[in-house]
Design a protein around this nucleic acid. Structure first.
Lengths: 218, 218
DNA sequence: GTATAAAGTTAGTCTTAACTAACATATTAG
DNA sequence: CTAATATGTTAGTTAAGACTAACTTTATAC
């Protein structure tokens, strides 16, 4: 199987290539905090293992195989996060570091069991889709909260930024997954939103935050 | 912190020194399936880190620090095994390999949570003690030989005093870990025991010695 | 009590995955 | 279009942790 190190490269490649489909050596280097020559070297090795398409001076692209392997690691990460939150009582902001380590555990049984105990979830505590055992994920059409109009009722579905800071911020305002939110109004000058949910009414949310909250209309 | 590799050496040293209090390079090498020169090298590094007492051609002994670190890894291993069995529905035969990996996870929180959910167990279902957060374990699971009654059959589990003198004494009488012993009789005046084991029958053991031998009833 | 076997050590090599320094190619700015 | 800058590569080094071959010390057998 793959080394822990290779798995981290795969995961980073997968995460970074979401938008453009490819990644620069530079981006990958910065994301992993590993110097560029090391990354170049590793890419050659991984190309040899048919995990990534590599050509000198060209952007990096995961192969089909690489994409699947990456998805399977992400599957383990997200199942773990969800298990920790749902079954062990951890908070959102605590689970990332633990999942980052557990995702490398080699034990199909362990993750199959988590999945079973969680009732085969398709989305994790951050609302992002969980790849299935074949590395396939279901993408659902979520909207950014910032794109919603006054009067609409939506349900919290995912967060884009998962930094500790941000998650703590959401906790303080009791904003969590599945929360039903009604958009009261939008300030025209700075796009700040005034929303209502649970026992919070007239809560204001900055545009920056609204850009990072994915919601489901219903 | 320590590398995964060092942790495995610590754990093996701890497990193997249960009986004699010290371990030969050869035993350690066989147990880890790592060649002797590699072990010697690692012992020097670990001696430098004050985890093990090392002198050329002498048996290996964990330092106090090394013992504690090892106990903390074993704590994580046993808590994980118990958690997998009790809370996730695994069978005992399935959990060892998983625990072997999870024991290296760096997250005090995770194991504190397992401990909490398991209701602060001091022993696993095999009666083996689980070290606490300070690496201390309770040995109550075992009885002193001196507390056993005539007719009982017991198995040697641990020795309290590990002085050279004492261990040599035990060696001369071929008393070792795992040895099955039957208590024949107890002299009422000085509590000397007459016991039978292997090809020794009618061997007498003083009360002083019986006080230092921990046994498991079976 | 020496000869032989077993255990332990030393020296030198390999692989993985990191690094720096120096060089090469692309991109951007004027 | 060329200069400057940013990005990417090559070459050589390092540390951890494994190995083999050869040597040394300790233990065991006769």
């Amino acid at each position: 199987m793959h080394s822990l190190v290779e798995e981290n490269y795969l995961k980073a490649l997968f995460a970074l290539s979401k938008d453009k489909g490819s990644v620069s050596v530079n981006d990958l280097s910065k994301h992993l905090d590993i110097k560029m020559p090391t990354v170049t070297n590793m890419m050659k090795k991984m190309a040899f293992k048919n995990l990534v398409h590599y050509q000198s001076y060209k952007p990096l692209k995961l192969t089909k195989k690489g994409k699947k392997e990456a998805a399977l690691i992400i599957r383990k990460h997200r199942l773990t996060e969800m298990y920790l939150v749902e079954k062990m009582g951890f908070g959102w902001e605590e689970v990332h570091n633990i999942a980052e380590q557990i995702e490398h555990i080699k034990s199909p049984k362990l993750f199959a069991k988590m999945e079973e105990l969680l009732d085969y979830p398709k989305f994790d505590p951050h609302g992002t889709p969980i790849p299935d055992i074949n590395g396939e994920m279901e993408w659902k059409a979520f909207s950014k909260l910032s794109e919603c109009k006054p009067g609409e009722r939506v349900k919290m579905a995912a967060v884009i930024n998962t930094s500790d800071e941000f998650l703590k911020f959401l906790n303080r305002r009791e904003i969590h997954l599945g929360l039903k939110i009604r958009i009261e109004s939008v300030e025209p000058f700075d796009n700040t939103m005034v929303v209502k949910y649970k026992n919070h009414s007239g809560e204001t949310i900055s545009h920056t935050v609204c850009e990072r909250l994915l919601v489901e209309k219903f």
